[in-house]
């Protein structure tokens, strides 16, 4: 699923970064790579951007919907 369909406030693993080279490069420069754990923190109104937090480095990035739908994720079930 893409970040747009993913559940909020639960750890997600990045399965793939789709999209063009420049978007992928920017995402990677900002510390988002395949296999990283992220969490959705919030969303703006009117099909606005989503807030994505990288669990490892605790940085938060706002991704526009166009970008967010290029980030493919899967939910991770935390070992309890």
């Amino acid at each position: 699923m893409t970040l747009l369909d993913a559940p909020h406030n639960t750890p997600l693993r990045i399965v793939d970064l789709a999209g063009g080279e420049s978007v992928r490069r920017r995402l990677m420069a900002m510390g988002f790579h395949k296999d990283d754990l992220v969490e959705l923190d919030g969303q703006a109104i009117l099909r606005g951007p989503v807030l994505v937090r990288s669990c490892r480095s605790d940085t938060t990035v706002a991704l526009g919907r166009g970008v967010a739908q290029k980030v493919l994720v899967e939910p991770v079930h935390e070992p309890s």
Partner: peptide, 12 residues
């Protein structure tokens, strides 16, 4: 050309 879309860090 389409806009590449928003990638913006939200600093603490």
């Amino acid at each position: 050309e389409p806009s590449p879309g928003l990638i913006l860090e939200i600093p603490s």
